[in-house]
Design a binder for these strands. Structure first.
Length: 878
RNA sequence: GCGGGCGUGGCGAAAUGGUAGACGCGACAGACUUAAAAUCUGUUUUCCGCAAGGAAGUGCCGGUUCGAUCCCGGCCGCCCGCACCA
C-alpha cells in the first residue's frame, strides 16, 4: 500500500461522476502555499548533497513584470526544479537590482521620492512573481538599495582601495549646461540633452575608477575555461578586452622645431610603407598646437561632434589636417608629415599611429583623400612584385615583405610574422621603442553624479586629499530628507548635512564625495551575497561553497559589462581575501535567452505627425481587417519586435495568469522557440498551451489510480503495453537531454509525443501508470502546479517538487528491429526492416532483393555498396 | 567600418555527416453538436500522377564525401555588439 498524499484525495471510480475541468486559479495558489509551508525551496547551507546554484539575472524593480521576466525565470526554474529532482541541493534566490536612473526619472516626473517609488515597485512586483510559482528561496531576498547591502558594497570599495584597485583621475562626461547635470549617453539625443534640449558639452571631471585593467590578461585567459558559456559572449568579451601585441615606438623630430612622437602599432613589419603620422584630435600635442592655431582648434571641435563610439568614428569620413610638423623615419631617415586625423582614438595605445596606407583601410582612405603616398610592402602570394599595386582596398593579409630595405635594416623576403619580430628587435636595438602588449580594455569609471546609488565612501580634505571613510564609520547612508530631484543638479551636493563633515584624518572641515557608484557595481557581487548574507560583506565560507553559480540565465545585452565586471569583482574579492574562488570565475554556466517579441499595431500618425501605437488587446480582426476597438480606426500591423512600452506591443503577464494561469504562461514561453532565440507572443500559442494543459488533465482523469502508483515499473509489459513503455522511456531519455542541453523546445516536443501516445492507449494497467508517472514528473519543471495536482490525483507520494526524477530503463531504448533506408547514389529508393545485429552481408543481400532496388539497378553497374549497420545502405552504381 | 550570429513548409521549428520537415500553431475535410466552443479522426513542402511511383527542394554559386541542412571557400540578405540604460 502506498501512503497517502498531503491532501485528502478524492478517488474516481468511474467517468460518470463528472470531474471539474482543471482550474488553475484554484490549484495554483493552493500548491504555492503548500510549497511555502513545507519550505521546499529554502536552500540548506549545510546539506550533504552536491550543490547546484541556479540564478537568473535579478530584475530592476520597474513596478511591472513583463514577459521577458517570465521567460527568463521560467528557464531558470526548469533547471532549478530539474536539478532538485536529480538530487542536488539547489540554491535559487531572487532579489532586486534597485538603484539606478529610472527611480530618479520617476521622481523628476512625479516629484516623489526614489526610495518610496522603488520599494513600492518591489512590493508591486513580488505578487505576480510569486503567483508564477517559481521555485525560489525568498528567505534570501534583498534589494541593492537596502542599507545593509550597500553598506557592504562600501566596505568592498574600501577593501579594493586598500588593495590598490581604486584610484581617481579626470575623465570626460556629458555635461548639460542648462540642467547643470551629467547625462548618461542614452540621455544625449543628437548631441542634445534629453530634457533641456541644450547642446551637451564634454567636460572633464575628477572621477573614481576600478582598476579592472590590472586583470586584463587574467580576464582574457579565464574565458578559455568557460566552456559552458556561449561562444558569442566569450568572443565579445575577448574583443572588449582587445589584447594586441605590437611595438610602441618613438618617431624622432626631424628638426628642433618639431617634436618626438610616441606611436603604437601592431604591424611594425609595414614600417617601410609608412607615409605619415596621425595624431588623435585629443592628443596632448594636438591640444597644445590648437592653442595657437584656430583652424586646428576648429577641427578638434568637429571631431568632438562625431562622438566617442568606435562605430561613429569608424563610419565617419576620414578627415585630417597637416600640422606642418615633420618626423624622421627610423629606417630610411626620410621625413614623414604629422597629421591630426579624426579616426585615431586617444583612449587606445598612445593616441598616435603611423599610417601605412597600403596595408590599412583607414590609412588608405585617408591617404587617397589627402594625396599621400601609397607604397605596398607586403606582397600577397602569387602576385608579381614588379606589377603589384594597391588601389582602393588595403591588403591586410599574409605575404612576403618587399620594398623594405635600407642601410639600417633589410626586411625583404621575410614573412609578416618574421618581419614583425625583426622590426621590433631593430627598433629596440636603436633605443626607439619596445615590443609591448596593449589592451583596449579601460579602467572602469564608477562615479555617477546622481542621488539614487551607493554613496562612494570618500571624504575630500584640503590638507589630506581624498581620504577613505574609516570602516567603523560605515555606512555612509543616503539621506532621505531634503531630496528634490525636480531641481537641476545632484541633491547630495546641495544637501544641508550630507556633504559637510570633518576629515577623519586631520579633523579639519572637509566634504563628502557626492557621487554615487555605478549600479553595475551593485550587480557585480549580489550572487555572493545570496549565497550567505551573514558576515561582512557576505559569509565567506558559504559564498565560497555555493560559488560559482552553476547556471546563470539572462539577456545577451549583459554579455560584456555586467558579466565582465562580475568576473573582475570576484577576482578582486578573492585577492582581498574575502572569497575562496581560485579561478575567480563567478558563473560556470551561462545561458543567454532570447527576447519575447510581439507584432506592433498602429492607427496612423496623430496631428503632430507622431505614430500612434495601440495595444494588441484593443485590436480585433473583423472580416480579415484589423480594427482598433476603442476608436474603430483601421489598424496597420508593424514589425514584430521586442515587447516595449513605447510601441505598446506588450502583453501583461498578470492578464495571462488571470486568464490561463501561471503554468500556461510558463509553458508557452518555453515551448515553441529555442531558448536562445526570440519567441513571438501569440494568442494562438497561448491557447495551444491551455489546450495541452487540459489534455494532460483529461488523461489523468481517465486513469484508474486504484491499482498502481505513478512510480510503478511495468517490467513485465508485453505487446502494446511494452510499446507504450518504450515510448515513455525514449521520450524521457530525449527530454532529459533537452533539459541538460538547454533545448527546452525539444523537451516539450518529446512531452507532446508521450502525451499523444498515452492518449491513444486504452489499457488501465501498470504500463499506463508508469508512462503517466514519467510524463507528470517530466512536466513538473515546466508546469509545476499542474504536475502536483496530477501527482496527487494519481496517488503519488509527497510533493512532486521533492520527487526524484524518473530513471530511464536502458533496455527500453534498444530496438530489436531497425528500419534502414536503402539509397542508390544517395537517393532513397526503399527501406527494409532488419534485426538490429544483422551482419552487413545479410543486410546487403536483403537490400539487393528489394523489388524497387532491383528494378532501379537494372542496366547499372554496381561500383560500391556502403552498409552502415542500424543506419543506412547506399549503393553506388553507374 | 570592425567583430559576431542567423538564413529549412503558410508560421514557430526538428534533424549537426546517414530517410529533410519530428513536435506545435494555422489551414482544410470529416465526426459529435440545434449551433458555436471544446474534443476526436484525417490531410497539409512544391510539382507530375487515379494510384504505385517519380521529379525538385534547407538563401545563392562552387568544393570535399558513397552520402551535406550539417564540413570548407566565395557571394547575397537579415540581426546583434562596438565603453555612463539596466
Amino acid at each position: 500500500m502506498r501512503s497517502g498524499p498531503l491532501l485528502p484525495r478524492f478517488t474516481r471510480h468511474s467517468k460518470i461522476a463528472a470531474m471539474p475541468t482543471y482550474n488553475p486559479s484554484e490549484t495554483e495558489p493552493k500548491w504555492q502555499s503548500l510549497w511555502d509551508d513545507a519550505n521546499v525551496f529554502t536552500a540548506d547551507d549545510h546539506s550533504p548533497k552536491p550543490k547546484f546554484y541556479a540564478l537568473e539575472m535579478f530584475p530592476y524593480p520597474s513596478g511591472r513584470i513583463h514577459m521577458g521576466h517570465v521567460r527568463n525565470y521560467a528557464m531558470g526554474d526548469v533547471v532549478a526544479r530539474y536539478k532538485r529532482a536529480r538530487g542536488f541541493e539547489v540554491l535559487h534566490p531572487m532579489g532586486w537590482d534597485a538603484f539606478g536612473m529610472p527611480a530618479e526619472n520617476a521622481a523628476i516626473a512625479t516629484g516623489g521620492h526614489p526610495k518610496n517609488w522603488t520599494y513600492a515597485n518591489i512590493e508591486q512586483m513580488k505578487g505576480p512573481m510569486k503567483r508564477l510559482g517559481f521555485a525560489l528561496d525568498w528567505s534570501r531576498e534583498f534589494a541593492t538599495c537596502d542599507v545593509e547591502y550597500y553598506t557592504e558594497q562600501q566596505r568592498i570599495f574600501l577593501k579594493f582601495w586598500d588593495k590598490g584597485l581604486v584610484y581617481s583621475k579626470t575623465a570626460k562626461v556629458n555635461w548639460d549646461p542648462v540642467d547643470n547635470t551629467v547625462l548618461a549617453n542614452e540621455q544625449v539625443i543628437d548631441g542634445k540633452g534629453w530634457r533641456s534640449g541644450a547642446v551637451v558639452e564634454q567636460r572633464d571631471m575628477q572621477q573614481w575608477f576600478y582598476k579592472i585593467t590590472e586583470y586584463a590578461e587574467e580576464l582574457l585567459k579565464g574565458l578559455d575555461t568557460l566552456d559552458r558559456w556561449p561562444e558569442k559572449v566569450r568572443t565579445m568579451q575577448a574583443n572588449w578586452i582587445g589584447k594586441s601585441e605590437g611595438l610602441q615606438m618613438r618617431f624622432e623630430a626631424a628638426s628642433d622645431s618639431d617634436a618626438d612622437i610616441e606611436t603604437f602599432t601592431t604591424r611594425p613589419d609595414t614600417l617601410f610603407g609608412a607615409s605619415f603620422i596621425a595624431l588623435s584630435s585629443d592628443h596632448p600635442l594636438t591640444k597644445q598646437l590648437a592653442e595657437t592655431r584656430p583652424a586646428l582648434d576648429a577641427f578638434r571641435a568637429e571631431c568632438a561632434k562625431i562622438g566617442t563610439s568606435e562605430e561613429a568614428i569608424a563610419l565617419a569620413p576620414k578627415l585630417g589636417i597637416d600640422t606642418g610638423l615633420r618626423v624622421k623615419h627610423p629606417f630610411t631617415g626620410e621625413t614623414l608629415p604629422v597629421w591630426v586625423a579624426n579616426f585615431v582614438l586617444m583612449g587606445y595605445g598612445t593616441g598616435a599611429v603611423f599610417g601605412c596606407p597600403a596595408h590599412d583601410q583607414r590609412d588608405l582612405d585617408f591617404a587617397r583623400k589627402y594625396d599621400l603616398s601609397v607604397t605596398p610592402v607586403v606582397l600577397p602570394d602569387g602576385e608579381d612584385a614588379a606589377t603589384y599595386t594597391v588601389e582602393n582596398d588595403a591588403y591586410t593579409g599574409e605575404g612576403t615583405l618587399f620594398h623594405s630595405a635600407s642601410e639600417t635594416i633589410v626586411l625583404n623576403g621575410l614573412s609578416k610574422d618574421e618581419g614583425i619580430s625583426a622590426a621590433i628587435s631593430k627598433i629596440e636595438e636603436m633605443g626607439l621603442g619596445k615590443g609591448t602588449t596593449q589592451y583596449r580594455l579601460r579602467d572602469w569609471g564608477v562615479s555617477r553624479q546622481r542621488y539614487w546609488g551607493c554613496p562612494i565612501p570618500v571624504i575630500h580634505c584640503d590638507d589630506c586629499g581624498a581620504v577613505p571613510v574609516p570602516e567603523e564609520q560605515l555606512p555612509v547612508e543616503l539621506p532621505y530628507d531634503h531630496i528634490d530631484l525636480t531641481i537641476p543638479g545632484n541633491p547630495l551636493d546641495r544637501h544641508p548635512t550630507f556633504k559637510h563633515i570633518d576629515c577623519p584624518k586631520c579633523g579639519n572641515a572637509a566634504t563628502r564625495e557626492t557621487d554615487t557608484l555605478d549600479t553595475f557595481g551593485d550587480s557585480s557581487w549580489y550572487f555572493a551575497r545570496f549565497a550567505g548574507p551573514k558576515g561582512s560583506p557576505f559569509d565567506k565560507a558559504a559564498a565560497s561553497a555555493w560559488l560559482p553559480v552553476d547556471q546563470y540565465v539572462g539577456g545577451v545585452e549583459h554579455a560584456v559589462l555586467h558579466l565582465l565586471y562580475s568576473r573582475f569583482f570576484t577576482r578582486g574579492l578573492r585577492d582581498c581575501g574575502l572569497l575562496d574562488l581560485p579561478n575567480g570565475e563567478p558563473f560556470a554556466g551561462l545561458f543567454t535567452q532570447g527576447m519575447v517579441t510581439h507584432a506592433t499595431y498602429n492607427i496612423g500618425k496623430d496631428a503632430s505627425g507622431k505614430m500612434e501605437w495601440v495595444v494588441p488587446a484593443d485590436v480585433t480582426d473583423k472580416d480579415g481587417k484589423l480594427i482598433h476597438m476603442p476608436t474603430g480606426k483601421a489598424v496597420t500591423q508593424g514589425d514584430v519586435i521586442k515587447m516595449s512600452k513605447s510601441k505598446k506591443n506588450t502583453v501583461d503577464p498578470n492578464d495571462i495568469i488571470e486568464t490561463y494561469g501561471a503554468d500556461v504562461a510558463r509553458w508557452f514561453v518555453l515551448s515553441d522557440s529555442p531558448p536562445e532565440r526570440d519567441v513571438e507572443w501569440s494568442e494562438d500559442g497561448v491557447r495551444g498551451a491551455w489546450n495541452f494543459q487540459k489534455k494532460v488533465w483529461r488523461i489523468v482523469e481517465a486513469t484508474d489510480a486504484s491499482e498502481h502508483a505513478p512510480t510503478v515499473l511495468a517490467t513485465d509489459a508485453k505487446g502494446d503495453a511494452l510499446a507504450l513503455r518504450r515510448s515513455a522511456h525514449k521520450a524521457l531519455e530525449k527530454l532529459t537531454v533537452g533539459i541538460e542541453a538547454f533545448r527546452f523546445n525539444t523537451s516539450v516536443a518529446q512531452i507532446y509525443e508521450l502525451t499523444n501516445a498515452l492518449l491513444k492507449y486504452n489499457g488501465q494497467d501498470a504500463a499506463r501508470m508508469e508512462a503517466l508517472g514519467i510524463l507528470i514528473r517530466a512536466i513538473a519543471p515546466f508546469m509545476p502546479h499542474l504536475a502536483e495536482e496530477c501527482w496527487e490525483q494519481l496517488g503519488g507520494v509527497g510533493l512532486i517538487a521533492t520527487a526524484q526524477w524518473p530513471d530511464v530503463d536502458p533496455a527500453m531504448l534498444i530496438e530489436d528491429e531497425v528500419v534502414m533506408p536503402i539509397q542508390i547514389n544517395g537517393k532513397r529508393r526503399a527501406e527494409i526492416s532488419v534485426a538490429k545485429d544483422m551482419p552487413k552481408d545479410e543486410i546487403e543481400a536483403l537490400a539487393m532483393a528489394e523489388p524497387n532496388i532491383a528494378k532501379t539497378l537494372e542496366g547499372l553497374t554496381i561500383r560500391k555498396v556502403i552498409v552502415v549497420p542500424g543506419r543506412i545502405v547506399n549503393i553506388v552504381a553507374q
